[in-house]
Amino acid sequence: NARWTTEEQLLAVQAIRKYGRDFQAISDVIGNKSVVQVKNFFVNYRRRFNIDEVLQEWEAEHGK
């Protein structure tokens, strides 16, 4: 399903906090979204969920 429920959106943001840009890991956490759908989520929801800021926090924690 290409549509993202609110629950899936929140799950994705939590997974980004945990896995950074590991699209496969994020896809696995959500369970019903492909890697391509996760990559599209990054692009389409970047502003709404401040994904750049979430990634900066992840990179700071993981030394990337």
Rank of each mutant, 00 (worst) to 15 (best):
N1V: 05
N1Y: 12
N1K: 15
R3G: 12
R3I: 15
T6V: 13
T6S: 13
E7P: 04
E8C: 00
E8S: 04
E8I: 08
E8A: 02
Q9H: 07
L10R: 12
L10I: 09
L10Y: 05
L11G: 03
L11M: 11
L11V: 14
V13I: 13
Q14P: 00
Q14K: 11
Q14Y: 11
A15N: 09
A15L: 14
I16S: 00
I16D: 00
I16Q: 00
R17H: 04
K18V: 06
K18P: 01
R21D: 12
R21A: 12
D22I: 00
D22N: 13
D22K: 07
D22R: 03
D22L: 01
Q24M: 09
Q24W: 05
Q24H: 05
A25W: 02
A25R: 12
I26W: 00
S27R: 06
S27M: 02
D28H: 12
D28F: 04
D28V: 06
V29Q: 10
V29M: 13
I30R: 03
I30L: 08
I30E: 02
G31P: 13
N32R: 05
N32S: 13
N32L: 03
K33W: 09
K33F: 05
S34M: 01
S34Y: 07
S34I: 00
S34A: 08
Q37T: 03
V38I: 07
V38Y: 01
N40D: 14
N40M: 12
F41D: 03
F42S: 03
F42L: 07
N44W: 09
N44M: 13
N44G: 09
R46N: 08
R46G: 15
R47T: 14
R48Q: 15
R48V: 13
R48D: 15
F49N: 00
F49H: 10
F49R: 09
I51V: 06
I51E: 06
I51K: 00
I51N: 10
E53D: 11
E53R: 13
E53Y: 09
V54Q: 07
V54Y: 07
L55T: 04
Q56C: 07
Q56F: 11
Q56K: 14
W58K: 08
A60P: 08
E61C: 06
E61V: 09
H62K: 10
H62F: 07
H62W: 08
K64P: 08
K64N: 09
